[in-house]
Design a protein around this nucleic acid. Structure first.
Length: 185
DNA sequence: AGCAAGATTAGC
DNA sequence: CTAATCTTGCTA
């Protein structure tokens, strides 16, 4: 589930160095019946990773400008992914700032799905990566998120009825506050 | 072969 | 509020 990814750590280890951040905001895109999911039109070349085994990455170029990274969550043949929308920077902050090429406070370096891939140096080359590997991977460092909020997903025109965005309540690195949180746990 | 749209962001 | 920027997927 999307909730389980909150509090985990996304790490990208490259020649330039290692950068990582605590996952504080995600959105679920589930199945061909979800109109906002890239699997909605059925299998295509682009969404192939969604139909693959869980635990792999699905990276794509959005608006011709930003790379967005998902974690494939369902068994092979069942297309679903969780979009990572924001991280609290942990390691490699100097490297992140260099990649962002812009004066930004620490907490905002990985704020937003396009910004975090830029800060971590994630691109199309990282598509279909095994997230239990040693280049782009998710680590459990025993850190949890104490308070979680849910809201509709952001930036989409369809499927807004589903409250499948979840984030660390009130965290400074969350991309933005929800218009209407559905519940808090 | 041509075209419209898109899970965003920064700048005016 | 809008431009930027380009790949995918659909239509002809």
């Amino acid at each position: 589930m999307a909730r389980d990814l909150l509090g985990k750590v996304l790490v990208h280890d490259t020649r330039e160095g290692l950068a990582s951040g605590l996952i504080v905001e995600v959105e679920a895109y589930v199945g061909e019946s979800d109109p906002a999911c890239h699997a909605a039109p059925g299998p295509t070349k682009r969404n192939a990773p969604l139909y693959g085994p869980p635990g792999f990455s699905y990276v794509y170029l959005n608006y011709g400008v930003h790379y967005l990274v998902n974690v494939v969550t369902e068994p092979e043949g069942s297309p679903a992914g969780v979009l990572i929308r924001a991280l609290e920077p942990l390691e490699g902050i100097a490297l992140m700032r260099r990649r962002r090429m812009r004066p930004i406070p620490d907490h905002a370096l990985c704020q937003g799905p396009g910004n975090l891939t830029r800060a971590l140096g994630i691109s199309l080359k990282n598509n279909k990566f095994d997230l239990r590997g040693d280049t782009l991977y998710i680590a459990d460092r025993g850190r949890g998120i104490e308070s979680v909020s849910w809201s509709p997903r952001i930036g989409i025109a369809v499927g807004t009825d589903r409250g499948w965005r979840c984030f660390a309540s009130g965290h400074v690195s969350v991309s933005r506050e929800p218009l209407s949180p559905l519940r808090k746990i």
